[in-house]
Amino acid sequence: MLITKYLNAEARFTGTVRYFPVAGASVIENYRSPDFYVFLLFEKCSGIHTVDFIDYQQKDLQLHISFPGQIHSWNSGSDTIGHKLLVSKSLIETSLFVTQFAHLKSNGYPVIDISHEVFNHLVREFSAIGHELGLPTPSWDVIHLRTQLVTAITNRLLEEVTDVTSIQKITHPVLVKFQFLVEEYFREMRSVAEYAEKLFVSANYLSALCRKFKGVPPKKIIDQRIILETKRLLYGTDMSIKDLANNLGFPDPASFSNFFKSNTGMYPKKYKNGGSSLK
């Protein structure tokens, strides 16, 4: 099972780009994605891929996108054939790769169905990157340019998906900035007023925008991001409740546990031990 075989090698990944072939069945529970981006291109596949506690059906001709720190589980069939590309955060986030997913730092579409034409385009780039990496003296300029092309194609796919599901699309520039700020400051900023101040708008205006375009108040968006990170850390690390509270900016374990219970119906320890079905 090549997917399982390569997980340890992935965890030790320290370069900018790495390629792995994928084949065969694999079952993994609550695997915390290391600190890089992963592009997983399936030619054939069946099963379930769970990304941050949401289930996605695995099918032929799909592109799966993994962000740093996400929690993954999967049960892939024996028919699985594909290609995996690991790309460092620095290459994605500090290079000239202007991509929707890197800009928003939000993996809203981790699984995308693709056409035969798009698959053939992507598989050529994945295979060429793998070939170049296997040379005695690989050209990193070539590797990085081909990786940039993969991210550009992915960005176009995400834009197409977003257009199709326009009802969920963030259409106001203030909300784009708000989501970016939540991703950056959710550990230290809890109140809507703090975010509104950074956005140079009133808290009431930010609330009106969130309700209009997202259907929820801004406080719910902030709290949901904290809850997601809590779940990631509960399943992906061995941190104590005290360490979790400290990591997420709570003054003490009690306030952290009460916050989590008020949003999920369970205390953190109970959720980790028996709440895996709670999405």
Rank of each mutant, 00 (worst) to 15 (best):
M1C: 09
I3M: 14
T4Q: 07
K5W: 05
L7S: 15
L7Q: 06
N8Y: 05
A9F: 14
A9V: 15
R12S: 13
R12N: 11
F13D: 03
T14I: 09
V17Q: 00
Y19C: 13
V22W: 04
V27R: 13
E29T: 14
Y31T: 03
R32Q: 08
S33A: 06
P34C: 05
D35P: 06
D35L: 08
D35S: 06
Y37R: 05
Y37G: 11
F39G: 08
F39Q: 09
V51R: 13
F53V: 04
I54W: 12
Q58A: 12
Q70N: 03
H72D: 09
H72N: 11
N75M: 08
T80L: 07
G82C: 12
G82P: 10
V87K: 03
S88F: 00
S88K: 00
E93K: 01
F97A: 01
T99V: 04
F101L: 15
K105V: 12
N107L: 10
G108K: 14
I112G: 09
V118S: 09
V118P: 04
N120L: 15
E125G: 14
I129E: 10
L133I: 07
P136R: 03
P138M: 08
S139P: 02
S139I: 02
W140D: 05
I143C: 09
H144T: 08
L145R: 13
R146V: 01
Q148P: 13
L149T: 12
V150K: 06
V150R: 04
T151D: 01
T151S: 10
E159C: 14
E160K: 12
V161K: 08
V161F: 15
S166E: 11
Q168G: 15
L175V: 11
F178G: 01
F178Y: 04
V182M: 11
R187W: 08
R190F: 09
R190N: 13
R190H: 15
S191E: 12
Y195R: 14
E197C: 14
K198I: 05
F200T: 13
V201T: 07
N204Q: 13
L206C: 06
A208R: 12
L209W: 14
L209F: 13
C210P: 02
C210L: 01
P217H: 12
K219N: 09
I226C: 12
I227F: 09
E229P: 06
T230P: 02
L234F: 04
M239S: 12
S240Q: 03
I241T: 05
D243G: 03
L244K: 14
S255G: 07
N263W: 07
M266P: 13
P268E: 05
P268C: 03
N273V: 02
S277K: 15
